[in-house]
Nucleic acid binder design. Sequence first.
DNA 1: ACCTGAACACCGTTCAAGT
DNA 2: ACCTGAACACCGTTCAAGT
Lengths: 235, 235
Amino acid sequence: MTPRTDADELTERPRVPLSRRRVLRAAVELADRDGLDALTMRRLAQEVGAEAMSLYHHVANKEAVLDGVVEVVLGEIAAAVEDVAAPAAADDWRGALRARILAARDVLLRHRWAPAVLESRTTTSPDVIAYYDGVVGILRAGGFSFDLAHRALHVLGSRALGFTQELFRPDGAEAPDAEAVAGMAERFPNIAGMLADAVHDDPDGTLGFCDDQFEFEFALDLILDGLERRRTAGS
Amino acid sequence: MTPRTDADELTERPRVPLSRRRVLRAAVELADRDGLDALTMRRLAQEVGAEAMSLYHHVANKEAVLDGVVEVVLGEIAAAVEDVAAPAAADDWRGALRARILAARDVLLRHRWAPAVLESRTTTSPDVIAYYDGVVGILRAGGFSFDLAHRALHVLGSRALGFTQELFRPDGAEAPDAEAVAGMAERFPNIAGMLADAVHDDPDGTLGFCDDQFEFEFALDLILDGLERRRTAGS
DNA sequence: ACCTGAACACCGTTCAAGT
DNA sequence: ACCTGAACACCGTTCAAGT
């Protein structure tokens, strides 16, 4: 648009030629910083110091960008999962799987937009299949039949990758002022009671109503429990 | 755009005045028929025989339309859940909850786009809170503490409304031709083994690899099991 | 009060043209 | 080979004008 000046040359980082890798890294950074809605072809181009149309030489279209950022994030997960200190699957499949799932979760907590993108993909990414292949490997080493391992994948669902989409986030939870709770009590008596009870248990309220990490681990352990029970019962 | 003619008068259904209710019903029908991407303000207007701008007299904006279609679907769920034959919660909380969840699932199977919209809402809809209020009511009647009921909501997550977003749908499952499986075996040995085993169990293949309804119920029962175990253990 | 057309500020993407 | 500007067919939405 405006002609390039020497000033541009000096303030810009050295002119690296565009590449698929660089486009995708920029896309992840952009989504981290400004959210998923900010990830448009035009803004992404701006981010790498090019015009929107230049991107099309390195990615087929926007869907390919979204596939690509999934690839980047799953790369980070694969690396984190490899590095994690965990017992051998043959000795303790639960410990092995639990540690890996929590490591994956740590990565997704740094890319909060990623679960939504992951769920929007219509064809399963090879990297997702590879991740689940690792999960099945752990289960097999822990003594699961293929059949029960298959069921385990369905029970775990996205939790195997360390996240669950929460539909229900009680709004008044952080600031449960008496008035809002009172209005709520009429329409949602059970929820209101639950909230009141939680506040009572923790009068300072500093912990907040929902400690998501705690809840995630509680749910994960309940499921791992149930799977272990099925494993020893069946076969 | 083109002037109205008598022919239009005759072929159109009788001119009902626009209303929020009518706009939202049309939005649900449109999404059912042509998918979520087809749900644009312009196409929606066309659907009710008006211009796009006319919609704004009945809904604030597109977000309000999405909130509205959630409202409609949750209305259907509330009706289905009320009608379902289920044991009394005080006698059998598991049976009571299970029947309601499967009834909710039936509704969502008729509106497959609805889970994605539900998950896209940034503020929790009052209708979602009302639904979860009912769930807590059942758990309380079944002898749950507020604390354990709260955890149960987190464990169930969207499964309480009858759906789970599946990240992992093995593609070759429906047509596991030998070549594709062989290519897969190298990169995803465990998944390939799982697929091969499943095919072996069901040589006709008519059932397909994943019976989602079966898997949904298996996972649901595993979770209800685990919750019952926590309930009798704790207190 | 209810509805509308034109217009605005955005999208993703195609195409023909530049170096 | 790589990048670009203009243009196209869409979005959601504002505004001033119609009945």
